[in-house]
Design a protein around this nucleic acid. Structure first.
Lengths: 135, 135
DNA sequence: CTTGCCTCTGACGTCAACGTCAGGTTTTAG
DNA sequence: CTAAAACCTGACGTTGACGTCAGAGGCAAG
């Protein structure tokens, strides 16, 4: 498939895909005229790239670890970096959880004391989708 | 206390504190000569600001919601925004958890098949701090 | 053939949360 | 009193992951 279709399928911009290539995260076959062509599997790879970007990894780090993650195989060296990143993500999850709980506390403390902020009905509560402590 | 001490106590730079003030997140008493002075409570506020920044909230959003969070009181309007941010954070936690689990899978799949990647000893495992599925 | 859409490279623009530097004032230590 | 350290405002620099625009080709349809 060409770049436009890959962009549509993976939900990222054409610009982003060219940027990924520039960063060594994604390679493409070139047709004679220079146009990029991708195999089906490229969409999965792009999703994986986005997943890692969303976790706060840099282009450089992703470039280093992406082969391992795709192949589900690691060398001792890469495993150390993978573990380091995992620990960072764990810490981030912990911090986010504390932040979320703090917001939750504010939300559920029945509003401001002196504002006539009653529980009128459940319409507001219903809008808040399901929430347990740690799903 | 003055800005340098607050910076030291809260672990952020002096520049960051001035930036927070510029964004309306932190106010300071000014001495006659124009120097900023902060009460003890400012350190907690700075920690809270950092907490919210780390959760991906923008300066604008933090400025809007910080009073609610500090006072643990919310109006119906602010509660909606708080809930929206909490949902965003929840989604982020879920995504991070999936990413972490993916990295974990790669890490624990006993290395690359053909590399002589043995479990030599527990020194490597011990270095990986405690890890359960969902602490 | 030409119309219209897709693609190419190259290069500058953006945005947020600060870093850093310049040039000057204030506070503190000796 | 004086030198060092801390502080002030103002302004430009940085970084990463793209957005956007310009100008030039490529490709199937009518």
């Amino acid at each position: 498939m060409r770049i436009g279709e890959l962009a549509a399928r993976s939900g990222v911009s054409v610009r982003a895909l060219r940027y990924y290539e520039e960063q060594g995260l994604l390679d493409a076959y070139r047709s004679g005229s220079g146009q990029r062509h991708y195999p089906e599997a490229a969409a999965d790879r792009v999703h994986l790239i986005q997943m890692l970007y969303a976790a706060g990894l840099s282009s450089r780090t992703i470039a280093d670890l992406l082969p391992c993650v795709e192949a589900k195989a690691s060398t001792p060296a890469s495993r150390a970096r993978l573990a380091a990143e995992r620990d960072r993500i764990d810490a981030q999850i912990a911090a986010l959880t504390r932040t979320r709980d703090r917001l939750d506390a504010v939300i559920h403390l029945s509003g401001s004391p002196e504002s006539g902020c009653a529980w009128i009905a459940d319409e507001d509560v219903a809008a808040e989708a399901g929430h347990s402590a740690t799903p």
